[in-house]
């Protein structure tokens, strides 16, 4: 179970090694699932990518608690994403051939998060254009990847966490202005 916790923590941080390990261990399973259910290799890569993003968001939610094996949970997320895509492509009667055990997931997993957030993504892309690269990095590391001030200071070579805190204050104020002109 310790290994499972390490995976969750790694995904929360967007740790490249963890993501690589997940790819190595589980992409074959997802590829099989997608390709045996009317999909292509490219579809499998899309599903794998989207599933990791969904997990990233889900694991960073403070209330989330993983109660099944990561492999089962990951397969279930990918299955839901591909089933949603199949229904979009071929109608509501799409069915899945399963190759692993899966768990039932909540309603949010049946939505294509990119489509539902399309407007927000466009607005954010516009707003971020007017921020400098440093600002983007600080904001994403703090709000998305949940890094601490100290970690950001170390990663972005700031003198201390207070410097990061001041810089972050300026950046978020600018972002708010950009989003709410």
């Amino acid at each position: 179970m310790n290994e499972e916790n390490n995976i969750v923590t790694g995904i929360k941080k967007g740790d490249s090694e963890t993501l690589h390990a997940i790819y190595k261990d589980h992409f074959g399973m997802i590829r099989n699932l997608v390709m045996k259910n009317s999909g292509s290799e490219s579809d499998a890569e899309d599903v794998f990518q989207d599933a990791l993003v969904v997990l990233f968001k889900k694991f960073n939610h403070s209330k989330f608690n993983l109660t099944v094996k990561f492999k089962t949970y990951f397969y279930s997320v990918c299955r839901n994403i591909w089933l949603t895509e199949l229904k979009k492509r071929g109608g509501k009667w799409a069915r899945m051939k399963d190759y692993e055990q899966h768990v039932e997931l909540g309603y949010e997993f049946t939505l294509n998060w990119k489509e539902t957030q399309e407007e927000a993504i466009q607005r954010m892309e516009q707003a971020m254009k007017y921020l400098g690269e440093k600002c983007q990095q600080i904001l994403l590391m703090f709000y998305y990847q949940k890094y601490s001030m100290q970690e950001i200071a170390s990663a972005l070579e700031y003198a201390d966490s207070d410097s990061v805190k001041t810089q972050k204050y300026k950046c978020i104020r600018q972002l708010k202005r950009n989003l709410n002109p």
Binding site: G14, S16, L19, H20, Y23, F27, E45, F48, Q49, D50, L52, V53, F56, K57, N60, W113, K114, Q117, A120, I121, R123, M124, E125, A127, M128, L139, L140, Y143, Y144, Q145, I172, L175, K176, L179, N180
Partner: peptide, 25 residues
Amino acid sequence: QQIHAVEHLEIFGAVQMGASLRQDM
């Protein structure tokens, strides 16, 4: 405004992460 900005940052972060993940893959 801050809640709004954080929500957008999370979405943007997900898009960024997805793009970066595709390259890594």
